[in-house]
Design a protein around this nucleic acid. Structure first.
Lengths: 194, 194
DNA sequence: TAAGTTACTTACCGATTGGTAAGTGATCCG
DNA sequence: CGGATCACTTACCAATCGGTAAGTAACTTA
């Protein structure tokens, strides 16, 4: 029945959920341990501190995000970027856990340039963006800024959806997704609707 | 020299900064007190608990945001919305503190419909959005979702700007702002470039 | 001048925090 | 069979957490 998951991997999963819900400061080792049904020393056995546990959670997330870009195939860079954002928006709305983590990581990383685990993911996206009509003649900074807006729009909406449903009734906000990604398609294609 | 600021107001200002930097769980009463050069009981004298202090910070923020919408004047609803977002983007990039707070508040409010202090602000914006070409024939949910994307794009970029500058050098990301708000203008106007 | 009121302070509390040290039972390997 | 490794546990720690209680010095008001 149980797939005999590596204990460290299991703790990492539970920590991922908790960190996405409560943020770094809101999560205690005891809470993660309680979720796993062990003592906190069991968690510390694998990750020597709370900092390392959190770093590992972010590293794993970055790898997952990077893999999803590479798994997206389409004829042109613009179409590939659109396909990626479509898939990302869909999965983010269905499961906002990753989006919450990314935003929290963004908020918690201060202005100083510390090593930020999500940088490779953004670099990969930037390369792609620079080959689209919207940003082909733009600077790297402009492309990066544009991407941040698109990612922000998706993540923000994904994070808000549960709260919105709570405030405005259980209306199906997932149906809205089609319209929004349509806007993105137009932005990426430089407002030249094919 | 000192404008003889109300002590409670001063603590509120300092708490706002700290909560935006570190989130609710990351801020201790002792930290805010240390910033103010007093003991934590001085802070507790005005706000009877940390929860109340945080709630007051959010309430004040919501009032400020609401006032800024009302202060934005333009002939048509679409132009007013565009003007507001332009002004908001500019101030958010210049000072991301408010944006950080809003995003943190959004992350920390769980899916359950609890009383969310920023709701009136969003309601006001939604009313405005429903009168623009982009959403005039849309449902309330669609308009709200669209707004969330725009707000998300602005706030996300504003929050990221310092980190981006840290990672990619002190390039002036504020110059990018013009281009991004241009995209928004087109979205709001329903991709009908005047 | 006496009585509040304001704006704090010191003293203290139990609970929780991240982390260390030392041990224990089960499983693996030669 | 015996040592090593694995996956934990119990025991413990100083520091910090939010919050209560009681007191005090300065200022305001009747």
């Amino acid at each position: 029945m149980s797939p005999k998951l590596d204990p460290a991997e299991r703790y990492l999963d539970l920590a991922t959920t908790r960190f996405s819900e409560l943020g770094f400061h809101g999560v205690s080792l005891a809470l993660v341990a309680k979720d796993a049904g062990v003592t906190k020393q069991a968690v510390l056995h694998y990750f020597r501190s709370k900092e390392r546990l959190y770093a590992e959670v972010l590293n794993r997330l970055a790898l997952r995000l990077l893999a999803e870009i590479d798994a997206t195939l389409a004829p042109t860079p613009a179409q590939r970027l659109i396909a990626y954002f479509n898939a990302y928006a869909a999965s983010a709305i269905a499961n906002p856990e990753d989006a919450r983590l990314v935003v929290r990581a963004l908020l918690d990383s201060d202005a100083q340039a510390r090593s930020w685990p999500l940088k490779p993911y953004l670099d990969r996206l930037t390369e792609l963006a620079l080959q689209t009509p919207r940003w082909q003649s733009a600077s790297r900074e402009e492309a990066l800024a544009g991407l941040y807006q698109l990612i922000g729009a998706i993540q923000y909406f994904a994070i808000s959806a549960p709260t919105l449903s709570g405030m405005y009734g259980k209306t199906s906000f997932d149906k809205v997704q089609g319209a929004l990604t349509d806007d993105f398609r137009k932005v990426i294609q430089g407002f030249e609707i094919p």
